[in-house]
Every structure is written in C-alpha cells, then in structure tokens.
Design a protein around this nucleic acid. Structure first.
Length: 425
RNA sequence: CGGGGUGUGGCGCAGUUGGCUAGCGCGCCGCGUUUGGGACGCGGAGGUCGGAGGUUCAAGUCCUCUCACCCCGACCA
C-alpha cells in the first residue's frame, strides 16, 4: 500500500477528547476515529490490526477443537427472561430496542443464553459432547461511562467461546485446554511477558473463582497481587488468606501491580443448561444438564492494550504478528535513482508477498521518519542517495537505534523466509 | 448516577468588564526555495461561534432550557 493512496493521514496534534495513550496514538496514526463515546471506527490500518488479532485468536481456538460460528446480536426478551438476565436491575448494560410490532429486543453483551438454547436442537446424547464453540462478534454494552479509548467501549469486538462437557472432569480438561490456548495467544500478540493468569470473583452465579488474564498497564482498571515467577496472581477483589492458600500463593512473594483485563474464563456449571433445558443422556439413558464454561477475549480491547503498553513516546510499536504491514518503506534524498530504488524494492517485496506500507510522498526525511515511528510498523526500510550508490537500502527495526545496509534481493529473502525476521535481526 | 469542566473553519486553540469586516497554529490549494528526524517565503480557500429561546441599539461574550463530549468517583459479565 502506498501512503499516497491511503485515505488516512497522520496528525501532529493530540486529539483533545482522548486522554488515553492508546486512543491518542491510534487516532494520530490514523488507525481509528471516534464516532461517539465508546464507539470507534476502524480505518484501513486499524482494520488490518483487528483482523490480525482475530486471526491469531481464531487459529488458537481452532487448534484446540473450537468450532467457529456467528450468532445474531439481536436478543429476544423471552429467552433472557428464562435466566433472569433481561431485567435491567440484574444486567445494567443492556442496549434495548423494539421491533415495529412492539416486541422488545436487546443487543447482545454476551451470548450464553442464545447459544445454550440453540444447542438444544443439536445436543441430546453423550455422543454429541464435548463441544467447544466460539465466535468473534461485535458486542454492545451500555456502560455508564466509556473511557480509555479501545479499552472500555460501548461497542467492541469480542471472541467468546463456550464449552459444553458431560462431567466435571471433562469440563476441567476443556478449561485447561482453553487456558493454555490463551497463554499462547498472548505470547503471539507480544504481551505474554506482561500478562498474568489471575484468580478473581466468580461472578453472580458462582462462589468459586473465575480467572482473568491481566496485562500490566499503567492506566489499567484492576489491581492484582502477582507472583512473578509463578506467573500467577490474585485480583485484589478476592485477595485474602483463604484465597491465597487455595491458590498456593505466598503473600510475601506477591507484588501489587496495576493491570488491564485482556481475557476472562470461568466455569458456568449447569446454571444455563438447567434453566434453558440443555440436557444429554448418558450410556444408561439417564438425563443430566450439560456442564458449561465461558471464555471471553476482547479483541478490540486487547488491540487498545497492546497499543497502550507496547508504545513509546514516538508512537506505536506493533509486534510482527499483528502489525498492519511489516515494513515502512520510504526514500530520502533528491536523486531520481533514490526514488527509483525505493519503487523497485516496493515492487519486489509486494510481489514476494511481503506486506509493505510505502511512503511515496515527496516529503522531508523528518516527516517520513516521524510517521514511520508513529505508525509503528516493525521495520523501516529507507532508500537514500548514499545507500543507492552502494546498491543497497537501509533496514532498521522500530525498536532499534542502529540500522544496517542490505541489498534488495537480500531484503526480500529476509522477509519471505517463513514470513518472519529472526529476533536477532 | 454524584462532583468538576468543555463545546468557536477538517484538527488543536485564543477571543478582556457585551461593541467595528471573529483571530492564531496545524492541515489544505497555488507558486518558488528547500530536502537524513515533523523546513521556509509569498499568495489563497475555508467558520456565524453545539442547539433552541430570551435580554439588548448591539450577543461568541449575559440569562433560561437543552444536547453532546471530557475528567474524577461509583459501577464494570
């Protein structure tokens, strides 16, 4: 993609209505634009990041046997009344509306009810289980106060997976599988080192813990007490002698950390299956409710957190796995050969399937470099009068201060070799 | 929902106790000079001041209502 064709532009000045680093940087760099409080538009660069995060999540969910679906966001009152969650006093984040006929509808903020109800049509025998079903869907929550850019919106993209098991042992296995998949996801998203598996309150239907994945973030909304070597933490809301003993945590080794939630997984037991009648019969023809688990991962929110915690004063810093493009290519200098060399590199790289954002503007070096840093692609490639003389271009990592000279051919090789550059580069 | 605050060209802001054709920076258009870390000169285009009502000879400035947004707090499957 050429920046001259990209309809978005970078901005030097901060957006006045954004206080969070993630919203400021993403807005300035042209990834998102705010439509209303807690509602954002994803522009070309932002859409690519969102899609890439979704893809990482999708791959890991599929690896553990997840089946992807897409449910409607429209929720019927009758269904949710069966679990008592239609009531605004029980769930205060509903966006509700009405059909022309007058019957009420809600916009989904989670989907236990519809999926459980749906599965009644397909699950009846022990042979139909276990199941892991997920979707990546836009959720709506009428938060009292939206804030922190993508970290707390009223409309957001979320992956929600639900597990259906025959018994506790099977449920535990599924739960553990998903937990491991989550750990892998956060590693791939570049925040593995910053993310803690955290015990928290079980929610309205459970006395046991639920578990959150919490990422270290200065402006996070949660506080955890973490054992850094065990990579295990406890949310301050449940921090206490009993909880610590149950988790096997030593209070002396815990460190207080501000964090932001990137995922939440918990046991639903048979709450929904019994209320909605999702049952199966075992080998002996005995009927029991299915045991369920729920696994959320906010895709857009995680994008915000990554932007927030992996950036520096000059701009965003995307991990390779989710960067909208791998390379920010440009040229500086007045020789016509310099631009030609850049054009040639662009052609070669894109033909080889490498994702390149080519800054083909006739702008000054400072402006181009500032934009490169702001947009935060993992690598910057520059053709200049000097490098052209040697038949090379310069390659620099976003996070590095040094650069090295490479030939175009070599560059293509580096970036097509497993689609990845080794860490040592 | 409680407290505080803000709405003025696309963006960021300034507009004294009401007073003349509403300014500035960024961005944008044109011409020229520049060109390795957000250049400079000259010339342009673009706003009726969130909305409604009111006071006044006169309202961006005052009053009433209203809408939107931001910050702090509470809340957060």
């Amino acid at each position: 993609m050429r920046t001259s064709e990209l309809f978005t532009k970078t901005k030097k000045e901060l957006p006045s209505e954004e206080a969070s680093i993630n919203a400021q940087l993403l807005t300035r760099a042209g990834y998102i634009s705010r439509e209303a409080a807690g509602a954002y538009n994803y522009l070309p660069l932002g859409k690519r990041v969102l899609d890439k995060i979704s893809q990482v999540v999708r791959e890991e969910m599929d690896k553990i046997g997840g089946q992807e679906i897409l449910l409607t966001a429209l929720q019927s009152k009758e269904l949710w009344e069966l679990t008592g969650r239609w009531d605004d006093k029980v769930v205060d984040v509903w966006f509700k509306t009405k059909l022309k006929s007058g019957s009420e509808l809600g916009l989904g903020f989670t989907q236990e009810e519809p999926l459980t109800a749906l599965l009644r049509n397909y699950v009846s025998s022990h042979q139909d289980l276990p199941l892991l079903i997920y979707q990546i869907q836009t959720k709506f929550r009428n938060e009292l106060r939206a804030k922190s850019g993508l970290m707390r919106g009223r409309e957001f993209l979320m992956k929600d997976m639900y597990s259906f098991a025959r018994d506790q042992a099977e449920h535990k296995k599924l739960f553990e599988k998903v937990k491991q998949a989550y750990i892998k996801i956060y590693e791939r998203l570049g925040i593995g080192d910053l993310t803690y598996f955290t015990a928290a309150t079980g929610g309205s239907f459970s006395k046991e813990f639920s578990y959150e994945f919490q990422t270290v973030a200065e402006n996070g909304e949660d506080v955890i007490y973490a054992d850094k070597t065990l990579k295990l933490a406890v949310n301050e809301e449940v921090n206490g002698p009993e909880a610590l003993e149950e988790l096997g945590l030593d209070p002396k080794k815990l460190e207080k950390i501000k964090v932001s939630e990137v995922g939440n997984i918990f046991n639903l037991g048979t709450k929904y299956s019994s209320l909605l009648g999702l049952n199966y019969v075992n080998e002996k023809n005995q009927e029991s409710p299915v045991i369920m688990g729920c696994y959320g991962l906010g895709v857009s929110r995680t994008m915000g957190i990554i932007a927030e915690v992996l950036s520096d004063k000059n701009g965003l810093i995307w991990p390779e796995e989710i960067a909208p493009y791998q390379i920010y290519l440009t040229y500086v200098g007045s020789s016509s050969n310099t631009k030609k060399a850049a054009e040639d590199v662009y052609k070669r790289l894109t033909e080889a399937g490498v994702e390149v954002l080519y800054d083909d503007r006739d702008a000054r070096a400072g402006e181009k470099f500032a934009d490169a840093d702001l947009i935060g692609l993992p690598y910057r490639v520059v053709s200049s009068d000097k490098t052209v003389e040697e038949g090379k271009v310069e390659l620099k990592k976003r996070t590095a201060s040094e650069q090295k000279l490479v030939e175009a051919e070599e560059l293509v090789k580096i970036f097509t070799n497993n689609h990845k550059v080794t860490k040592s580069d």
